[in-house]
Design a protein around this nucleic acid. Sequence first.
DNA 1: CATGAATGAGTGTTCATTCAT
DNA 2: CATGAATGAACACTCATTCAT
Lengths: 190, 190, 190, 190
Amino acid sequence: MAHPRPLRADAVRNRTKILAAAREQITLHGPDVPMDTIADAAGVAVGTLYRHFPTKTDLVGAVIAEHSEIITAEIEAAAARVEGGAKAMEEITTLVFRTVEAAARDRSVKAAAQTLGAAHYTEVQEERFTGAMDRIIAAAVADGDLHPDVTVDDFLMLILTAPTDQEPAVRARWLTLFLAGFTVQGRGQG
Amino acid sequence: MAHPRPLRADAVRNRTKILAAAREQITLHGPDVPMDTIADAAGVAVGTLYRHFPTKTDLVGAVIAEHSEIITAEIEAAAARVEGGAKAMEEITTLVFRTVEAAARDRSVKAAAQTLGAAHYTEVQEERFTGAMDRIIAAAVADGDLHPDVTVDDFLMLILTAPTDQEPAVRARWLTLFLAGFTVQGRGQG
Amino acid sequence: MAHPRPLRADAVRNRTKILAAAREQITLHGPDVPMDTIADAAGVAVGTLYRHFPTKTDLVGAVIAEHSEIITAEIEAAAARVEGGAKAMEEITTLVFRTVEAAARDRSVKAAAQTLGAAHYTEVQEERFTGAMDRIIAAAVADGDLHPDVTVDDFLMLILTAPTDQEPAVRARWLTLFLAGFTVQGRGQG
Amino acid sequence: MAHPRPLRADAVRNRTKILAAAREQITLHGPDVPMDTIADAAGVAVGTLYRHFPTKTDLVGAVIAEHSEIITAEIEAAAARVEGGAKAMEEITTLVFRTVEAAARDRSVKAAAQTLGAAHYTEVQEERFTGAMDRIIAAAVADGDLHPDVTVDDFLMLILTAPTDQEPAVRARWLTLFLAGFTVQGRGQG
DNA sequence: CATGAATGAGTGTTCATTCAT
DNA sequence: CATGAATGAACACTCATTCAT
């Protein structure tokens, strides 16, 4: 039940160091940063990088997956709060602001996503994400705060298209405009 | 009276071919496409590329400038129509749809803009763009169709953040949501 | 007897302009300066350069030849002065100093000679050069100022090996040391 | 006590092969020889060249440094012999001949130095070089064989300006002339 | 299992030379 | 006969990936 080999501990530690370095370097220099640079930053040799991630695409993908895991976890926490009685629309607003600001801080996500294009979500992740979000949306619609035709995909689009490379003020303005379309009155009584 | 040297005939033809090829190749493979590939696509040798555009940055910049010129021209045409009596808000909607669809078709614009980061608009272009857009916005606000605090920059943000790499249907939905925030009722009488 | 065609005048003028520009540009930027740069400096198109000098080597060779012509002429003048009664050893010293300083100023000569390696002297030039120099040497030996075994080649070596890329003071010291070997007492009564 | 990592075995072997190939190729074709050519001659890929020498300048510099190390070592050996009782002036003559002949055999030194211009001597090397030479010079002056104003720099100039690309006979003649200026009688009693 | 040296195709760019206008 | 646009082989250098140690 416990860890069978102590060697595995190093491997895990290395994987963590590599991911952290990759996140940092991609944020800093964009996804074109050389593998050698990431390896240096992680304090390991390139060979070790390739043992953990057979391809650069895999490494960048892992960085994105890591990020999406954080988002997913946050959404699940918000869903739990809503089920505990919190106001759904408020949770949504907070969630959206925080996620978008996080994406802005850590450019790796979008930069990488743009370059590599692929979808880096696990099926399991997608299910967790969609499930939790659906519950929050349903609650907000029931409260009469959210337009009934709003879906999870709308929020995904919002996060993916947020101008993360702009000033916070610009981003806030952008969010204000965009979220207006989500409310009931935003598009009439639909 | 006419152009003194007909010598330039080939040169002009080549420049056109190069720009067309660059536009196409950047659209196809992104702005990282090799100069050799663009040269091949244009049917010229690389040296010819470099005679016309001393740097890859220059070539990509030219492609972007070309595109922004088209956008600018369309906005000016719309402004003229509005001044001729056309419904301002309708022109805006049409304009936005068309521009976003054009950007979607020709990924070179956004891809290139992202990679190169720089502002590739001429000052003259920016003035033409801003001026024409201001006039349309004023008309729409006067009609009571547009929220009074909407600015040119809001539209720029819209164009820059539109999900150009998604299906047209997704994009249409995105636009619907976003444009709701621009209308008067979209955010109350605020 | 007169110039048959006026067209030739332009050609000559162009050749002169090209050689002047080549000399200047090679002095300025070394013999690796592009042909286009030389053409620009000469105010002609590259094609014209190639009409006059079918090869870059030819052009650089011509610059060197031009230079060697100047040296040759100076030596002939000195020889004439010696025959007119001037002190031979003094003429030699002056000659050597002036030539070496000229070579230092106009690096084209040595730089080009080094890169291209070849001997760029006309046979005629060589004869003139050797002849005049021989007469000065003979006079200096007769005066008892020059060691009898000194030859024209010794002086050529001196010019070719002078440290043209050093400070004038260094060069002066070098010349002092070197010329000591030429005098009668410099190596005993031989 | 010994070197901890035997891993470097190939690396050292490669470095040696690369330096040897560089020396040879530069000697053969001048310092403009392509990196690919050197890599081929060394039997490695270009990438390996660049791993060992991040820049062409670095590689050429290393070749020069290697050579200057040899000269320095020889001078130190000569200084030791002089201190052991050997005739200083004889050591100087031998040294100069050998060094100049070595430079002639290995054109890389001068060719490279000329193109790249930089000083490739370590400070340590310069100290060793100057120190040893000073001792030999002092001894020769004490013997009355060398003009008292001769300095280390004079010898450096001699080595740097020697006609290494000429026939040995020409070089010998050149040295005879030049060295005459170094002796006491060569320029009178000063 | 980590290391880091080696690989080599690929990148942007230059420049001597040719040739249509 | 001049022009200058076009050519394309080279060049220095980079970097994802492999593999001997």
